[in-house]
Amino acid sequence: MNITLKVWRQKGPNSLGAMETHKMTEVSGDMSFLEMMDVLNDRLVREGKEPFAFDHDCREGICGTCSMFINGEAHGPGRNVTTCQLHMRSFKDGETIHVEPWRSAAFPVIKDLTVDRSSFDRIIQAGGYVSVNTSGDTQDANSIPIPKHDADEAFDSATCIGCGACVATCKNSSAMLFVSAKVSQLSLLPQGKTESSERVLRMVDQMDIEGFGNCTNTGACEVECPKGISLTNIARMNREFLSSTLTSK
């Protein structure tokens, strides 16, 4: 099939960007979106032009590296997929496809479609862990039974891949879904419960410092999240933050 691409070109963090148009022919429906971008880049190199810089790594939907805003949606039109798992059969012959980087003050553009998401790392560093040493001399793994339901729910929250689609999608660039998923995972498990109160305060603080916007409960993040992380995580974090601020000394 034939496709018209309009792709964001931006030289560096402080340069102005603009959309650039490229025609693609003989696109196969079995190609992933990134493979289609590979073909475009291959052509650009052969023509002596600079290819588009975009982030990608595992290409199987789990590393969370790929990050394109395609046709007005994070990771494009599919549901529960990342850009690398989005296939060209999701588009129509002759369609015009807009490709942009994630846009958020907390995710500055590095080049073209590549953004800097280290703000997410700093939020995890603020408290997204259990303060346990790695000596291995902890208690036996089976010494605390965890209700299957809690373990499953914690797992669901833990499946967040940190891609930033929630931020990219949210009209306010809010990182609540990302932060709340980690807060939820750890507070649902007895191992993480002990410090859940300090954790939520510190992580929310860091989130605010990074310049993410506020959650206005539009629910767009949940819809666009490639891993289907639920809004109940946000509610849980709201609850935990409220009780933690009221009870912290």
């Binding site: 790695t134 499953d152 833990a158 191992q191």
Partner: peptide, 13 residues
């Protein structure tokens, strides 16, 4: 396994 459970790794149960 002990270490990972202590870190909050949600293994299947």
């Amino acid at each position: 396994i002990d270490q990972c459970v202590a870190q909050g790794v949600p293994f299947a149960r």
